[in-house]
Structure formats: structure tokens, C-alpha cells
């Protein structure tokens, strides 16, 4: 499988390390094998050089010619609605979830655990009842079938607004 993301003018990258960690930048020029000139007018990053091993390349690419001045990059950035697109992407959502998880306090972790327990109980109950139904109708290959349905466990729905549940 060929590479799809290159270090090239216009390529948008996420800074993975250093002072600017977590900020989005756009490559303006490639200085040498290890460094690139980047600019981030839409994310508050001043034009500067950065080592390539500090960058994680994204699927986004802005269109401007190499060594474009900041005003051109800014225009391309806003025209492409890069900030919205990035916020929409799964990658940024995962990062946001990770951050949320790191910010959880001990009590929050307990709340999350108890919500998951509730959800799993509800799910198991539904699964068991479906299984029993299928067995009774003969589709499940089980001969001896209890008449009484599987014991219903607490099926209260978990509260919907739980952050970063997974």
C-alpha cells in the first residue's frame, strides 16, 4: 500500500510533541530531511520551523504554493473551514475523549463504572431473553427449554449524558 500523506506544502499536521503539542499546523515549506517550516494562523501558531518527528500528518491538505506568506495560509485555512473539519474528525474526537478521561476525578470514575454496570446488566438481560426465545422456537438447537423466561435482571437504562463512555 503506497503512502497517502506526505510532508508537502499545504499538508496539515498535528504537533505531537514539544511546546505546541496538540496544535494544528500547516506545512509551508520543507527545509531539509528533518525539518519543515510551518504556520498555524487558524490555531494561533506563529510561523516557525519544526522537526518532522514532532509532527503527525493528517488527511487534510490546504492549497497554496510553497513558501506562501501567512496571509495566504490564513485565507486557505478559513476557506477550507479547516477548524470545523478537524473538530468533526474522529481523530480530534478521540483526543477530546482522552482529555476528558484524564480530567475525571475519583468520584467521576466511580459514576462511570456504575453506569457501565447498569448498561451491561440491561444488555445481558435482553440477550438472555432473546436467547431463550430463539431456543424455544427451535432455532437454537437446544432441546430442553425452561418454560419460565430467563430471570429478568434490572433493566433500568443508564443515564444518557455520560461523558466518554466506551
Amino acid at each position: 500500500m503506497p503512502f497517502e500523506r506526505y510532508v508537502e506544502p499545504g499538508r496539515v499536521a498535528l504537533v505531537a510533541d514539544g511546546k505546541l503539542k496538540g496544535k494544528l499546523v500547516s506545512i509551508v515549506d520543507v527545509i531539509d530531511q528533518t525539518r519543515a517550516l510551518v504556520d498555524g494562523p487558524g490555531s494561533g501558531v506563529p510561523r516557525q520551523q519544526i522537526r518532522l518527528n514532532q509532527l503527525h500528518l493528517t488527511k487534510f491538505r490546504l492549497s497554496y504554493s510553497f513558501t506562501a506568506p501567512t496571509r495566504v495560509v490564513r485565507k486557505a485555512w478559513s476557506d477550507a473551514k479547516l477548524n470545523e473539519k478537524w473538530a468533526d474528525s474522529q481523530w480530534s474526537k478521540n483526543l477530546a475523549n482522552k482529555e476528558k478521561r484524564a480530567q475525571m476525578t475519583d468520584f467521576d470514575r466511580f459514576k462511570l463504572t456504575s453506569a457501565r454496570v447498569k448498561r451491561n446488566r440491561a444488555r445481558t438481560a435482553v440477550f438472555k431473553s432473546m436467547k431463550a426465545k430463539a431456543a424455544r422456537s427451535g432455532a437454537f438447537g437446544k432441546k430442553k427449554v425452561p418454560k419460565t423466561p430467563a430471570k429478568k435482571v434490572r433493566t433500568k437504562k443508564a443515564p444518557a449524558a455520560k461523558p466518554a463512555k466506551k
Binding site: 475519583d106 468520584f107 466511580f110
Partner: peptide, 24 residues
């Protein structure tokens, strides 16, 4: 209700729980 359950439950570390990285 949650708080009562919280006080009743014991604290423990799961896998990839590092106390120095956790917020309490």
C-alpha cells in the same frame, strides 16, 4: 445515591491505572 455507593465502594487500581497520573 451515587455518593452513598461511592463511600461504600472500595478504591482499587485497574490495569493501566497509574495513581501518579490520576486526578482524585
Amino acid at each position: 445515591k451515587l455518593l452513598r455507593g461511592y463511600l461504600r465502594a472500595a478504591f482499587g487500581l485497574r490495569s493501566s491505572h497509574f495513581p501518579h497520573r490520576l486526578r482524585f
